[in-house]
Design a protein around this nucleic acid. Structure first.
Lengths: 199, 199
DNA sequence: GTCTATACTGCGATAGAC
DNA sequence: GTCTATCGCAGTATAGAC
């Protein structure tokens, strides 16, 4: 549904997305200009406008797949009873979604994590926030105490960090993702059904 | 050293800081304009320029005290041997620093957390990043495995979240901060000297 | 499908009066 | 200490040629 690989004669549309994401992640959304994207692509700024009606549309197109994936998890979650098993399932699925996202858009999660403020007033940004809360609600009872809620939020954050943090450590994305999943499981109490909620 | 309460006849300088932070946190640094700050203050944009030479100077002044506080912890840390005791001390001190920061600038940590990308190219932003790494280095051996490094980073992040996350929960800042500290301690292995580094 | 050229807006910053 | 006025520039976006 993203609009790739239809009958187009060039791949400019896809290349715009790649370059835009690179610049978004590096300098932030606001400081990334359409001229900058066009320059790096070797086309003019007007050519970018041909493919995307606005700058925000580029961002939206970048987030499409991720939002769709989050929705799938949010739909699936309630088919299980609340508990460690569901928490585990949510974390595993989200971890897989982030890994898939990384394949197509390596810097997207970092960008989302570190530019929340600048995109929260746009539809796509608000959509991500909303779904993030939806995922969190699958991990922890909204009536639970602060410590548990914080832990649940951190569990999701751990998965995010797994896609971009610790670049300096000599480990590939897969190893980081796996480590992040373990940390997240521990935080959310997704492994040993007993023995949490008291420290 | 921030420049308050000297022999000035008005408090505009301080009020600029308050309004600026509010807007930075709400819309981000880039989307906050000097005109916007001036308008909310009921003065003109030129009046703002009288007190701060540039927009970046306002940001810098906002981060001064925090950076100073981080430096103190980074100086103090190495006086202890690496281990659970030091980790506990670092987390406690950082938690206290964040609480003090919250008193003077309630939204500062949220802003830093959610606008990293947009300020990382400015001196003050880079300074914060640097010190954050310094704190992390006091919590975990740079040669440790990914899982431990991720946990250490998450521990610091937990303290950040304690200052602004979970607004919806009915608990005051103190309770959130205390809960965050407990979660951070668990993450960093700052309570039970044995029993970590293997999951 | 991509270009040139340009309209329009709003930004940060400065000069100089009061 | 604050103002009015304005400069220079960069941003998004559009019209229309090729």
């Amino acid at each position: 549904m993203t609009g790739d690989s239809d009958g187009r004669r060039t791949n400019t549309r896809q290349r715009i997305r790649e370059v835009a994401l690179e610049l978004f992640a590096e300098r932030g959304y606001d400081q990334t200009t359409l001229r900058g994207i066009a320059d790096q692509l070797g086309v003019t700024q007007a050519a970018v406008y041909y493919h995307y009606r606005t700058k925000e549309d580029i961002l939206t197109s970048l987030l499409d797949d991720l939002i769709e994936g989050m929705d799938k998890i949010i739909e699936w979650g309630p088919t299980l009873e609340p508990g460690p098993e569901r928490r585990l399932g949510v974390l595993e699925r989200y971890s897989a979604l982030l890994a898939a996202t990384f394949e197509k858009a390596p810097q997207l999660i970092r960008f989302l994590q570190e530019s929340q403020t600048s995109i929260k007033d746009m539809a796509a940004g608000a959509g991500i926030r909303e779904r993030f809360q939806g995922l969190k609600a699958l991990l922890v009872d909204p009536a639970a105490d602060i410590e548990e809620q914080l832990s649940a939020q951190l569990a999701l954050l751990a998965l995010h960090l797994g896609t971009f943090a610790l670049d300096e450590v000599d480990a590939d994305r897969g190893a980081r993702g796996a480590a992040a999943l373990r940390v997240a499981m521990r935080l959310a109490g997704a492994e040993h059904p007993a023995g949490r909620s008291r420290g």
